[in-house]
């Protein structure tokens, strides 16, 4: 058994990451999963959160919002609807999205889609946190 596995992160617009990783943490819809080489085959939906992986000694972190992942003993493929490296996050945009979502959640208008606003808030906060951490 080799001590790394192939990690691929694919978004609708590009292949974001293709690397040999030693370990990875991915945000499953029901909680974070830690993955080491030789993991049993698994398919999961992804929630909103951060993907952390270690490749040749350095740790990388990425923001991810919705997607799903296939885990195989020697390969992990992540399909992410939206995924960014910390330095790519548009802080101003996330901040604005956060404010908008908060306002929406506060309002008592029946027209507001709360589930959607909550999702948006979660995404925005995750992006902001990640951007701050990496500064």
């Amino acid at each position: 058994m080799s001590d790394t596995f192939q990690l691929e992160i694919v978004t609708p617009t590009r292949l974001l990451v293709k690397d040999a990783a030693e370990e990875a943490q991915i945000p499953g819809a029901t909680g974070y999963l830690g993955i080491l080489p030789g993991h049993a085959p698994l398919i999961t939906e992804l929630g909103v959160g951060e993907i952390t992986y270690k490749a040749s000694g350095t740790t990388h972190t990425l923001a991810v919002a919705w997607g799903f992942a296939e885990v195989l003993p020697d390969k992990v493929t992540i399909l992410a609807e939206a995924s960014e490296r910390p330095q790519e996050i548009d802080v101003a945009r996330a901040q604005k999205a956060k404010e908008r979502a908060e306002e929406r959640l506060k309002s008592s208008n029946a027209e507001v889609d709360y589930a959607r606003a909550e999702d948006a808030l979660q995404r925005a906060e995750m992006r902001l946190n990640l951007a701050k951490e990496k500064k």
Partner: peptide, 12 residues
């Protein structure tokens, strides 16, 4: 992708 004839664990 996701089509290997193995028994996947489905989280959901």
């Amino acid at each position: 992708f996701a089509t290997l004839p193995v028994d996947y664990i489905y989280e959901q």
